[in-house]
Each structure stands twice: as structure tokens, then as C-alpha cells.
Design a protein around this nucleic acid. Structure first.
Length: 467
DNA sequence: GGCCATCCAAATGTTCAGGG
DNA sequence: CCCTGAACATTTGGATGGCC
């Protein structure tokens, strides 16, 4: 047999073995052991966060025992420690490793995986799939896009977590927090059709611990568990290479080649001093103050909820948070009324107090207090100092991403819009003011239909022979 | 008919002032 | 810092006439 004549199919870069390698006696609670094996480092921790304050600690100031929501375990103790969480509700754990000081990015010891929080229940066409169908769908999607299979697929008691484990762990010098987020953003784009959560992309993220229960009471199937395991691992760089092509392409301006002029012209001093100074009396009649901007954003979020017919079940905490932030920013609430307002907004979102707690908003409340007391952050820009509120003043882009606001929805909003939408409105406004749109025959090329040249067409039309 | 320069308005890009 | 609307600046492209 002449094998040289046969075209050998190009082997894929990645292994696509669909065998589920979960051990027979596998217990989901020990899932972290798959990627946190014992090691010789003493200072590597795994942080656990609970919905309720259940972890006792000694408060050094008062020397009394208090309860915290967060605790940590040394990686080397996991084997003994994990089983105590089995069957508990509302337990989440870090994906990556930290030192003993905190769970902040600066205290990261190493990253060990990329993850994706896929809220499939948000996707109409996929929400009724069985777990087996979801696995197949995900693996198909990976193959179609030529990326490796995730090593772990967990059902979170609602959505799904995909985890790509690094062959070798990675320090923050090899992969910084921002670089990590860039890869995560690519993953989110790639898994958008699986409901990938835009908000879950940071290196310090905590994910629901397998073997525990999802506390959301409306779920019937609340146990978080591992449903797929694949033991072929790739290095962080290999994974990054695979995902990077799904990064949002940066908009690069390609400078157009200028027409060559024969005479040598001194380059125009385009920079400073060319634009005329504006006459302040001619300033726009309507300018947005921070106050007005915050009010408009508040209204826009309300509109957004209406546009979604109140169907914002999965982003209620986000709406609650941002509505409060903007309400405080425009002075419509203060720290005295903060809790009442929070409860009021929550109830308008059908958000029962059993599903969230005021503790979730404590950072915001602190900011409101500082805001009300007139504290402000001073920032320096171009040698000048500016004062800013302690509250959040996000970019439109941030809000659009946070709430995944579509172009159609933006069309109904006042101020939370993309630059494209803004430009569209500007063009529309000019048209409304009576400016004629450009619509010519140059594109329809009517002379072609008559079978004459463009030049003749215009000559005849000039002579009145056409039309 | 083909090629080109020119005129003109639309379209798009950039900056300013404003709020604190 | 971040948004807005208008002013100001530059580019684009449709229409057209001159010229060979």
C-alpha cells in the first residue's frame, strides 16, 4: 500500500479525547486536589468564602472572638480540611493561590488555571439541555474553535464552570493580573453563546466549591459537582496562545498615505495653538454636570430593567449596587437613608432580603458616607489637582459590559451608549436639522444600464436629453 | 470614452468648556 | 475622571466640466 499517496489528515494541535477521566470513587469535594497537590511551599493558601459569617477569629483590638465570612487553608492541609465543607451551602473558593496575608491581587502566589463561568440558564436555546448535552456542546465548541478541552467541567448548581489547568503553575511575573484578565476576556467572548459571565474574569475570583450546595433556593438541582475531567494539560503559554486569537481586535488606525506634493511644504503645526479658543458665552446650553450624569444613568438603568421586562433575575445584585451608587452620586440618597433605599430598590427588583445582605453593599455604604461628608479623592492631572467623589464614576463602556447592554437596548437609553451609538445620533441630529443626506448616482451608476459612459451620461443629462 | 482637476457638502475627527 | 454638545478641523466622495 502506497501511503504516500494518501493525504494524512492534519493532526490537531490539541488532544481531543472525550473519555471522561473522572475516577470511579471520585468525590467532588476533593476537586481542588486535582490542581492543588501537596507541595513544598509553606506560604500558599486557598481562600474560602461563605455567604454567612461562620469562621471564628480573634479580634485583636477587643480581644474577643468574632465571626468572619472568609477563611484560608494551607494548600498542604486541603486533604483533611475539605471534607468539613461537604454538603454546606454558599461556599466558594479561590481558583488561584495566595499568600497568607489576603486574597488581593498583590498577594497572589501563583495562578494555576483559566476559568469560565458559563451561566447557561441565561441562554434560551440551551437552558433546558441535560448535563451530558452541555458537555458535548462545550467539547464541540472547543474543537470547532481549535482550543483545548477544559480539564474540568463543574456544574455549579445553576451554571457551569470550565477550568483549564496549567501544566505548571505561574507566578504573577510570568502572568500579571491584567494579562490574566485579557485572556479571560477572550474566553468570555468565545463562550458568550454559553452565557459566559462578563463579570467573572479576575485572577482573584472565587468559584463555588464542588461538593457544596448552591444557596439559590429557586433551584431544584443545587449540588455543585464535577461532571467532566480530562487529564491532558497544557502550559499557561500554550493556553494563552490558543485563546489569544479570540481577543477583541484592537482598533488600529492605519494612516493613509498622503498625496505626494512636489513642492516641499512645511508640516502643519497641527498640535497646540491651531484650534481656536472657544468663546465661553457660546458654550453648549446643556452641559452634563456629574449630578445630571448620575441621574441620567440611574434613569437609564431603570429603563434597562423595563426593556428587559423586569426579567433581570440574574443581575439583580448588579442593578441594586449601581442604582444605589448613582442615586447617592446625584444626592438622592444619603448614608442615613442608605439601608432603607437599598431595601426599597431591592424590593422593586423582587430581590428578597434572604437572597442578599446589606453586607454585600458595605463597601458602597462606606463610600456613600465619605461622599456625604464631603471627603474627596484628589487626583493630579496635567499639573492640576481635581477633587473626585469617593463613589464610583465608571465609563459607559464599563456599564455596557457589566450589564451586557445590546445595541438595540442602547437605542432606548439616554446616556449609557457606545461611541458608535453616539455618532449615529449625531448624524441623525444633523439630518433632523435639515441637512441633506448624501445619495447620489455615483454608486447606482445608471449609465451602465443605458450602456454609455459616465462622461456621456453627464453630458447628455446636462443637455437635457436624460430626465 | 477616458482621465483628471475642481468644487462643494456630507461625513467624520478633534478639541473646548463645563461640572466639582 | 468621565460625559455632553457645539465649535472647529479634516477627509471623503458625488457631480461636473475641460481636455485629448
Amino acid at each position: 500500500m502506497n501511503s504516500a499517496l494518501k493525504l494524512t489528515p492534519q493532526p490537531s494541535l490539541y488532544s481531543y479525547d472525550r473519555t471522561n477521566k473522572l475516577p470511579v470513587d471520585y468525590d467532588s469535594i476533593f476537586e481542588p486536589l486535582l490542581y492543588h497537590p501537596k507541595n513544598d511551599k509553606k506560604n500558599a493558601f486557598f481562600y474560602i468564602k461563605a455567604d454567612e459569617a461562620i469562621f471564628p477569629y480573634t479580634d485583636k483590638k477587643s480581644n474577643t472572638i468574632k465571626l468572619a465570612k472568609q477563611t484560608r487553608h494551607n494548600i498542604n492541609d486541603l486533604e483533611t480540611v475539605l471534607s468539613q465543607y461537604k454538603g454546606m451551602s454558599g461556599i466558594t473558593a479561590t481558583a488561584n493561590r495566595f499568600n497568607g496575608r489576603s486574597r488581593k491581587g498583590e498577594d497572589l502566589i501563583c495562578s494555576i488555571m483559566f476559568y469560565c463561568d458559563a451561566d447557561i440558564y441565561k441562554i434560551e436555546s440551551k437552558k433546558h439541555l441535560t448535563k451530558e448535552q452541555v458537555i458535548t456542546d462545550i467539547l464541540d465548541h472547543c474543537e470547532a474553535n481549535n482550543i483545548p478541552y477544559p480539564n474540568i467541567i463543574n456544574y455549579s448548581g445553576g451554571g457551569y464552570y470550565l477550568k483549564w489547568l496549567f501544566l505548571t503553575e505561574c507566578t504573577k511575573y510570568q502572568l500579571s493580573g491584567t494579562a490574566y484578565m485579557r485572556v479571560e476576556e477572550a474566553i468570555i467572548r468565545l463562550f458568550a453563546e454559553f452565557g459566559a459571565d462578563n463579570g467573572a474574569k479576575d485572577i482573584t475570583r472565587i468559584l463555588r466549591l464542588p461538593g457544596t450546595l448552591n444557596p439559590k433556593v429557586d433551584r431544584t438541582d443545587r449540588l455543585c459537582e464535577t461532571i467532566f475531567y480530562n487529564d491532558v494539560r497544557y502550559t499557561m503559554d500554550e493556553l494563552r496562545y490558543a485563546f489569544d486569537k479570540f481577543q477583541e481586535p484592537e482598533k488600529i488606525k492605519i494612516p493613509k498615505p498622503k498625496k505626494q506634493t512636489l513642492e516641499i511644504v512645511a508640516p502643519k503645526p497641527k498640535l497646540e495653538g491651531v484650534y481656536k479658543k472657544r468663546d465661553p458665552s457660546q458654550r453648549p446650553a446643556i452641559t452634563k454636570s456629574n449630578l445630571q450624569l448620575a441621574k441620567d444613568r440611574y434613569d437609564d438603568l431603570k429603563t434597562l430593567i423595563k426593556l428587559r421586562s423586569g426579567n433581570v433575575q440574574h443581575s439583580r445584585i448588579l442593578f441594586l449596587f449601581w442604582l444605589l451608587n448613582f442615586k447617592a452620586l446625584c444626592g438622592a440618597t444619603n448614608f442615613v437613608d442608605f439601608e432603607q433605599d437599598a431595601l426599597k430598590i431591592a424590593s422593586s427588583l423582587n430581590f428578597d432580603i434572604s437572597e442578599w445582605s446589606l453586607d454585600d453593599l458595605c463597601t458602597l455604604e462606606r463610600k456613600v458616607i465619605r461622599h456625604n461628608r464631603g471627603y474627596s479623592t484628589i487626583k493630579k492631572q496635567n499639573g492640576e489637582h481635581f477633587k473626585f467623589s469617593n463613589l464610583y464614576t465608571p465609563k459607559n463602556e464599563t456599564l455596557i459590559n457589566t450589564f451586557s447592554i445590546t445595541d438595540d437596548e442602547q437605542a432606548h437609553l439616554k446616556t449609557i451608549i457606545s461611541p458608535d451609538e453616539k455618532q449615529r445620533r449625531r448624524a441623525q441630529k444633523r439630518l433632523d436639522l435639515g441637512m441633506k443626506p448624501q445619495s447620489g448616482e455615483a454608486t447606482s451608476q445608471p449609465w451602465l444600464a443605458i450602456g454609455i459612459s459616465r462622461r456621456t451620461y453627464y453630458r447628455r443629462r446636462q443637455a437635457g436629453l436624460i430626465q
